[in-house]
Write a protein that binds this DNA or RNA. Sequence first.
DNA 1: CTGTAGTA
DNA 2: TACTACAGG
Length: 345
Amino acid sequence: MGVNIRDLITVAKEVELESLCRRSIAIDAMNALYQFLAIIRQRDGTPLIDRRGNITSHLSGLFYRTVNLVEVGIKPVYVFDGPPVPLKQKTIEERERLREEAYRRWKLALQRGDLKEARKYAQAALHLTPEMIDEAKKLLTYMGIPYVDAKHDGEAQAAYMAAKGDVWATASQDYDSLLFGSPRLVRNLTISGRRKLPGRDEYIKIMPEIIELDKVLSSLGIDRRKLIMIGLLVGTDFNEGVKGIGPKTALGIVKKVDDIDDLFKYTRFKESPEIIKEVFKLFESPDVNKEYKLEWKRPNREKIIEFLCDEHDFSRERVEKAISRMEKAYDKFFAVKGLDAWLFG
DNA sequence: CTGTAGTA
DNA sequence: TACTACAGG
């Protein structure tokens, strides 16, 4: 999932969530929803479901996370993937294969009565359905939070918006948006500062971290074109990468080359040079949706309650409380100030 | 993941 | 007030 260049990022800066006040941030929606779906579960591993059996983990995560961001004054924009570019087909097929395998192993573990194994595979077996995505968009609309449909890759769209200055940063757990040219990436955009270490009863403190593209590049002594080449070498969602080459080796290689054609003299990709050049182009100047408008509105209390509580069995008390927090934050941070707004708004 | 009740 | 344990849908 995503380009693995974590080992090269030494300039991540931990910040308090509050320091992002009044900043607009483009959030990779699929990335977020998928994580909610995987993590928000009961002790036996089943996700949250409403009375008709629909999964609601993604809605719970999206709702409460967004309320928390708005409460500290952050202006979120959710960016959804569009149809994948043909080059991504292999990755999608591979994910589908892994999912089906996880599904089989889940059933087998259930037969054995191995709940721990079952839980592990249940997480890997699930996927975001078109219905879940529609519901997420519906909820955001009722909450007054803007979303953008990407032409293809959400990360590419978010990076474009950040590079253009329409949002202050992109947010994702993956590093792809840096390759796409986002000047600023926020990771761990979450409220709960604590995370349980797997297996043990230990907790570590998690804080949001900001990674600035120009600092990454200057710390490595390369430009963005070479960062993309590193991605090509270690592997992306669009190509496999060269076996045996990790981020460190890749850095050494790209420092010796002048351009993408030069790269083929040093190493052999599994894909043809033509394909690799296409993938390079895809990162350098991706096809994006330029027709979007970002507008934060006051949440629609009635619609949210009708949707979450009436349709999906959320607790009315909790939801009402969250909406009130959001309204307060909206008036404090987002509402248009000034005499006109006071008179006519 | 996040909210909330319970405990010190 | 801070921290833990558990439920949420």
